[in-house]
Design a binder for these strands. Structure first.
Length: 434
RNA sequence: GCCGCCGUAGCUCAGCCUGGAAGAGCGGCAGGCUGUGGACCUGUAGGUCGCGGGUUCAAAUCCCGCCGGCGGCCCCA
């Protein structure tokens, strides 16, 4: 006992039974949505080629990957997210399938961040990827899924922060700002370091007029959506690529409106995300009561599959952060429905009845009744005390009279009553109780 | 990567300021005479006081470094 003990590594954690119950609950809600929206669940490997993630991960994430050389000399990484794996998966297995393809997943991801509130080095993500459609209804479906999940989890007050990367990228493209610099600028926006971003633009010889436009555009934010779109339109009207993006955003928002989905949107044209593969809408989900953590995020990535060697294929996706959802649910005291079933313990009164106890237990399990056998050789008093502490609902007591009469004593631990009955009667009583 | 607070039994913590023989509650285990649990009683195990170094006759206690936990920045899930 005094030996130096192993501990979990920094930022990683063991999940206790109650933690697993919570995880299972959130996963079950996500899986309901897979089913309702027709997403087929897949699994991909925890480890992939480093280059798969490296390409479009963004500066931030690239440095935070668990990366190593495997025994075959390959440069590999623990997945920091799943979208690139799904893009690869699609190319490897589903090119001949009719579109659209709807794929879902539940997976653990790894990032070498400094651990803190809501941030661990291993965390759980769910995911929805809708592949094959560039139409606004695809974007709307993904936003609707994000919203439905929040609703189904019981968040009473939540919102989705939304933007379209095409707006800023469109302006920068027209100004001939190289893509590497564009990514850096969006990265700075992401960190809300707008001043530095502007400085960087200046050094790229972007005109003052354009800088002013960008300054104005990234300040547009709120839920007065039409007003924001109108203002943006006025600022960027001469940038055709940016206008195209804005119109796309407008179309998506209008479809949201007309289909009466009532999704709370916070439009924020200065909002950016760390991943570099986004080409269209980007968004993050927040609970209003605790908006320091994004509970999920996503966006459109129309060029990623092509970049990985597939045909040009538009796609849009959303990934809820399961651990953070659990944190938020706890904090807001929203009920987490954990599975509860009635438990029965079989207690042999002495060692000679152990075989009979095992037989009875096995018999009951055959009828789908969860049963544990007392295996500590405890006397009845201790065994009942244990059963009580561990919230058993029934105890089945086996002693000489029971064996002789071919019956068992069934004790209802909640009511405190007990009956001497046949096994069939016991099964019936346990099964019909609620 | 940077900053702040913390680190004593399985858990929650007291003791540390003002150095001088490791404590409590909970939990665990064992009893409380024969086959009956739930806020009962008794007993008992369990600690290189995070790790390493320094100061001192003497360090859980003072000083330094490291590690770890929590949180903040940054960023994300």
């Amino acid at each position: 006992m005094s030996k130096r003990r192993f501990k979990v590594l920094r930022g990683l954690r063991d999940l206790l039974p109650e933690d697993v119950e919570k995880l299972k609950y959130v996963i079950s809600v996500i899986r309901e949505i897979f089913k309702l929206y027709g997403y087929q669940e897949i699994m991909t490997p925890t480890i992939e080629a480093f280059s798969l993630f490296e390409k479009k991960a963004g500066e931030e994430l690239r440095h935070r990957m668990y990366k190593f050389i495997d025994m075959g000399g390959r440069e590999v990484a623990l997945r920091p997210e799943i979208t690139p794996s799904v893009a690869r998966f699609y190319i490897n297995h589903m090119l001949s399938f009719q579109k659209p393809i709807r794929l879902g997943y539940i997976a653990n991801c790894f990032r070498y961040d400094e651990p803190q509130y809501g941030r661990y080095r291993e965390f759980w993500q769910g995911g929805f990827e809708l592949i094959g459609s560039s139409n606004p209804e695809a974007d709307v479906e993904i936003l609707n899924i994000a919203s439905t999940l929040m609703k189904r989890l019981g968040f009473s007050d939540y919102y989705i922060k939304l933007n379209h990367v095409g707006i800023i990228k469109g302006i920068l493209n027209s100004e001939k700002v190289p893509e590497i610099v564009q990514n850096r600028i969006l990265g700075l926006f992401d960190k809300t370091r707008y001043d530095e971003a502007i400085q960087l633009l200046k050094s790229e010889n972007v005109t003052d007029e354009c800088l002013n436009i960008i300054r104005e555009v990234i300040n547009l934010k709120g839920n007065n959506i039409n007003q924001i779109i109108d203002s943006a339109e006025q600022y960027i009207c001469k940038y055709s690529l940016a206008m195209e993006a804005l119109l796309n955003l407008k179309e998506i928002l209008s479809l949201l409106e007309k289909s009466e989905l009532k999704i709370p949107i916070l439009l924020d044209l200065g909002f950016a995300r760390g991943l570099e593969y986004y080409t269209g809408i980007i968004f993050e989900c927040f609970s209003s009561k605790n908006n320091r953590l994004a509970l999920g995020g996503g966006g459109r990535y129309d060029t990623l599959i092509e970049l990985f060697g597939g045909p040009p294929t538009p796609a849009v996706g959303y990934a809820p952060g399961i651990d953070r959802i659990i944190l938020a649910l706890n904090e807001e005291k929203i009920e987490i429905r954990t599975e509860k079933h009635r438990k029965t313990i079989v207690i042999p009164l002495s060692r000679e009845f152990v075989p009979y106890a095992i037989k009875i237990a096995s018999n009951l399990r055959g009828f789908d009744i969860p049963v544990e056998v007392e295996v500590m050789g405890r006397d009845l008093k201790k065994a009942l005390s244990y059963a009580n502490a561990r919230n058993f609902d029934y105890a089945i007591i086996i002693g000489s009279t029971e064996v002789k009469e071919e019956k068992i004593t069934l004790k209802d631990l909640n009511k405190g009553e007990q009956y001497k009955v046949s096994i069939e009667e016991a099964i019936n009583m346990i099964k019909t109780s609620k």
